[in-house]
């Protein structure tokens, strides 16, 4: 554990303590690694199938929605189902990071008030838990590949850095949202409604490119507005490689910029309010 060297003036708000928090939390990998697993096992503790339920419920939801929307939009199931499935899995990770991020310090009140651990421990634990959930859901993706083979090429490997970028973004969202919601509790229900709304605004069940190519100019015009939605880009960087589609550089650029700007904001807030969180929870 690092020995804090204390400058005389207001040490709580120094950059060194901010970095110590993030680095110290990272060093406690064995703790949050263990806890993250525990969280997953815990959820299905007394059930026979255990964490496989994560996989099953994802499969059921994706298949049901796939059939429904394939019918609604008049697409073939072989197009619609893989699209919805991958979108759903990725959205599960994103929304998980946001929803649980908004609750990350409030939910860990007991630990924060009783143990002098870096705040980042709770954030790492959250992202790790969401990653494990994601991994469980990827089983459905692999099964889908057998049933509906996709034109995969070597670009599928780009899904790995894409997911890494998602994790990096998930972490700053949890830091930033976690601190703000701890102070302003009204933001938790707002976040929940917002995430719900974003699910419909983001091309997960509807195929963005189909609308862009629509013969009705009004629809095509409106579809272009979806580009403003940052979550479109988050989805595209990982969905496209997983479905063997052509990559667009702009999605990666947007996600990278968001990661940098987001972390800058998160670091600023962490530096200023890190030491206040234990007072606020």
């Amino acid at each position: 554990m690092p020995v804090p060297t204390v400058p005389p003036e207001s040490p709580s708000r120094s950059w060194s303590r901010t970095v110590d928090d993030l680095a110290g939390g990272w060093r406690q990998r064995s703790l949050w690694g263990h806890l993250g697993w525990q969280d997953i096992k815990q959820r299905y503790r007394r059930s026979v199938l255990g964490p496989i339920w994560i996989t099953i419920s994802m499969a059921v939801t994706a298949v049901a929605l796939g059939i429904l929307y394939a019918g609604l939009f008049g697409n073939s199931l072989a197009d619609q189902l893989p699209y919805i499935l991958v979108g759903f899995i990725v959205w599960g990770f994103i929304s998980g990071c946001i929803l649980e991020g908004a609750d990350v310090f409030i939910a860990n009140e007991g630990l924060i008030k009783h143990l002098p651990a870096p705040l980042s421990v709770h954030v790492y634990r959250l992202v790790w838990r969401q990653t494990l959930l994601f991994a469980h859901n990827m089983i459905v993706y692999l099964v889908m590949l057998v049933i509906f083979p996709q034109p995969l090429s070597a670009t599928v490997l780009l899904a790995i850095p894409a997911f890494a970028l998602l994790m990096v973004n998930g972490a700053w969202i949890a830091v930033l949202l976690g601190i703000i919601t701890t102070r302003f509790r009204d933001l938790t229900p707002i976040t929940q409604s917002l995430v719900q709304l974003l699910f419909f605004m983001t091309p997960i069940v509807w195929i963005y490119e189909d609308f862009l190519a629509s013969e009705n100019p009004a629809i095509a015009e409106r579809a272009r507005l979806a580009e403003i939605n940052p979550f479109l880009h988050f989805l595209e960087i990982i969905r496209r490689p997983l479905l063997g589609q052509e990559q667009h550089l702009r999605h990666w650029v947007v996600v990278l910029v968001i990661a940098v700007v987001g972390w800058a904001a998160a670091l600023f807030v962490l530096r200023r309010y890190r030491s206040r969180v234990s007072y606020w929870v």
Binding site: P4, S12, K113, L115, S275, Y279
Partner: peptide, 14 residues
């Protein structure tokens, strides 16, 4: 314990 960092003043824990 370092759980509360002082709002004013200093606490140094080694």
């Amino acid at each position: 314990a370092g759980i509360y960092e002082p709002t004013r003043g200093v606490a140094e824990i080694r």
